[in-house]
């Protein structure tokens, strides 16, 4: 449980110098890294991670667990992730409500799930297995999606069900809610209202792009007003969480991301002042 607001950034190569060698630690409460980038045997990547960990708490965020796969989770993947977890002692371990592997094929993308009882059973069994292998509670992130598959419940109810059945927690990506709400025509505030507030540990903030017919989750621009607005509403519901700006392309100077993070701090402070 997070008992106060935390504010972090994703560790990206252009900012390694500042995070590793800056005279003062970068003013963040935690750093999030992509787990798979460090699930290697040795070399510079692990040295970078060791040095960052010496300065900051680290959250491990995965993209390849494939917790929605009907084939289950790759055993070698879990073994390597467990080794990384043991080495880093992370603040959180998270991955997405999506799938990428089936029948020996791996799409290396966050593919959508139908929100059905069949899928719920598969996802819960996979999360159970992952949490047992990792020896800890996982955070599951809501995806952005470009297809609305026929299902039996909305995404937020599916998330609520997996939390209830597996004891997992949630990483709520506010940008993904905006993207999927636009693409599938649901109300983003209804989504927030359906999320089990007590299970939300972390929030991702990011930007998106307008494609030809759909909003695309590109993470290549500043957090837009629509996401900030929903973030403020999310904090009203969820209270203290760990918030992080997720930028993966067209990465700006670190100072710009810190300025964006300051906006998140302002929104959280404003909410706390009003609550007091």
């Amino acid at each position: 449980m997070v008992d106060r607001h935390l504010f972090g950034l994703g560790l990206r190569k252009p900012h390694y110098g500042a995070f590793l060698d800056g005279a003062e630690p970068v003013p963040v409460d935690f750093v999030e890294v992509i787990s798979e980038n460090f699930m290697v045997e040795g070399g510079r990547p692990l040295d970078v991670l060791r040095r960052v960990r010496a300065r900051h708490p680290v959250a491990l965020h995965g993209v390849s667990m494939s917790i929605g796969s009907a084939d289950g989770i790759d055993v070698d993947y879990l073994r390597r992730l467990r080794a990384l977890v043991d080495a880093v002692e992370p603040l959180f371990v998270s991955d997405h409500l999506s799938w990428s592997r089936i029948g020996g094929f791996n799409a290396h993308d966050l593919l959508p799930l139908p929100y059905t009882g069949d899928a719920l059973a598969v996802v819960c069994a996979n999360i159970d297995r992952a949490q047992e292998a990792l020896g800890r509670t996982m955070l599951v992130e809501n995806p952005s999606s470009y297809i609305h598959l026929p299902g039996e419940m909305p995404e937020w109810e599916f998330l609520d069900m997996i939390c209830r059945r597996t004891g997992c927690a949630l990483l709520l990506d506010v940008n993904n809610i905006i993207v999927s709400a636009s693409n599938h025509g649901f109300d983003a505030t209804a989504y927030l209202a359906g999320i089990p507030a007590a299970r939300v540990r972390q929030i991702h903030l990011a930007g998106h792009s307008q494609g030809r017919a759909l909003l695309i989750d590109t993470h290549d621009r500043p957090v837009p007003p629509s996401v900030w607005s929903l973030y403020a509403a999310a904090l009203e519901r969820f209270g203290p969480v760990a918030t992080m700006i997720e930028r993966d392309d067209d990465i700006p100077p670190l100072a710009e991301l810190l300025d964006e993070l300051a906006l998140a701090r302002d929104i959280a402070s404003d909410r706390e002042r009003r609550a007091a």
Binding site: I102, F105, A107, L113, N183, R212
Partner: peptide, 27 residues
């Protein structure tokens, strides 16, 4: 089923064929 859907997705991505072809064109 979920498994059939996932195999269909694989077929779409690898050969633009299978049961999903022609459905959800934009997505």
């Amino acid at each position: 089923t979920l498994r059939a859907l996932q195999h269909g997705f694989r077929d779409w991505l690898t050969s633009e064929s299978g049961p999903l072809a022609g459905r959800y064109p934009a997505g």
